[in-house]
């Protein structure tokens, strides 16, 4: 790929031909504030926060503007600063000020941008504040939709379209009445939404927020236990509890994507009905037993059933190591090849 050299605020940086100014900046570790851009999605150029001055005369939107060799970009030009600040002030004036109790607090892109452009109470007080009061849509069991926090960046819409090709949501109405809506403005749970949560993950504020989310204390890299695709996951753990699942962006299979089961279907792990002790049937009833009792009984019975009187059914859910040992046990200890599993179902 051919390289071009551009200058951003006096720094000469190298960029790939075809990159946008914003991509070039990011690739070189430079921050240009932005809200509606997401690396997985095509640039929309709608929030106008990433505005820059190009070649000393032209206002350009850095997430849409392709790089050109020799291009000179200023992110601190006074006109650019003014537009950017006013734009962010307009968004903040339209946004609830409930940061401390907000799900996005600390990872909110609006907070980051507001801080960067220097929003002050005095500046903000000049504005007429009016936060839209639309009831929160709590119909989905895994996430809530709070339109009052929505900044209409459209990342969710583009995620559902460009990445998921589901198109459960789109813009409805126009102007200040615009909101992100399902077909017929039905609750999200009654829409075509497949609850994959990809939009929730990408929402820069908390207009889409996982229900009852808990920040994990640590994350463990693993593989999803549902279908055969084998998506990489990051299991979020607090104490001895799995409290979240995120897609592993480094995994070549899913590159961070997950489906509804993979992302939200983890609560079986710490379910109270999990088997915790061996059970032995006595008088037609399964009763709790010790491992010693159970192992003794099983070993005794199996010893008397060696050869083709015995069969084992392994599982497509358990690990290679588990399966290997089960077939080894069946063949080497029980002396039979009566081993199969549920591959055919």
């Amino acid at each position: 790929m051919s390289k071009v050299t551009i200058t951003i605020d006096g720094l000469q940086i190298s960029a790939d031909q075809g990159m946008t100014v914003l991509e070039a900046a990011q690739a070189n570790g430079l921050y240009i504030p932005n809200l509606c851009n997401h690396p997985d999605l095509k640039p929309a150029g709608l929030c106008r926060v990433c505005v820059v001055k190009m070649d000393d005369w032209k206002i350009a939107i850095s997430c849409k503007q392709p790089v050109k060799d020799g291009m000179v970009i200023s992110t601190e030009d006074p006109e650019v600063q003014q537009i950017r600040k006013n734009t962010v002030e307009l968004i903040v004036a339209d946004h609830p000020m409930t940061c401390l109790t907000c799900e996005a607090d600390g990872k909110c892109e609006l907070q980051r941008v507001a801080h960067y452009v220097g929003i002050t109470p005095e500046g903000l007080n000049r504005y007429r504040r009016k936060v839209r009061a639309i009831p929160i849509d709590r119909s989905n069991p895994f996430f809530d939709v709070d339109h009052s926090k929505c900044i209409l960046c459209g990342i969710c819409v583009r995620t559902c379209d460009e990445l998921q090709n589901i198109n459960a949501i789109d813009y409805a109405q126009r102007g200040v009445a615009s909101f992100i809506s399902t077909l017929g403005a039905k609750p999200i749970a009654d829409s075509r939404c497949e609850s994959c949560g990809e939009c929730v993950v990408r929402c820069p504020v908390a207009a889409l927020a996982p229900k009852g989310a808990q920040e994990p204390m640590r994350e463990v890299k693993s593989i999803c236990a549902y279908c055969g695709v084998g998506c990489g996951v990051m299991l979020g753990v607090r104490g001895q509890k799995v409290v979240s699942v995120q897609g592993d962006r480094d995994n070549p299979v899913n590159k961070g994507s997950l489906c509804v089961k993979g992302r939200f279907g983890y609560k079986f792990i710490n379910h109270p009905e999990r088997l915790k002790t061996p059970l032995i049937k006595k008088n037609g009833k399964l009763e709790e037993a010790t491992w010693d009792e159970a192992l003794e009984l099983v070993a005794d019975k199996f010893s008397k059933s060696k050869g083709d009187k015995f069969a084992a059914l392994a599982s497509a859910r358990i690990t290679n190591e588990d399966n290997y040992l089960i077939q080894k046990f069946t063949r080497a200890v029980m002396g039979t090849n009566n081993i199969d599993h549920c591959a055919r179902l």
Partner: peptide
């Protein structure tokens, strides 16, 4: 006899996915 097993989140090992990729499963809890 019913024997209580660990779930995938409670053990190490590997899964082989549909494209024959052998990937590490890790104990989280």
């Amino acid at each position: 006899v019913v024997l209580p097993a660990s779930s995938f989140a409670e053990k190490d090992g590997t899964f082989s996915n549909t494209e024959r990729r052998i990937q590490r499963v890790r104990k989280a809890i």
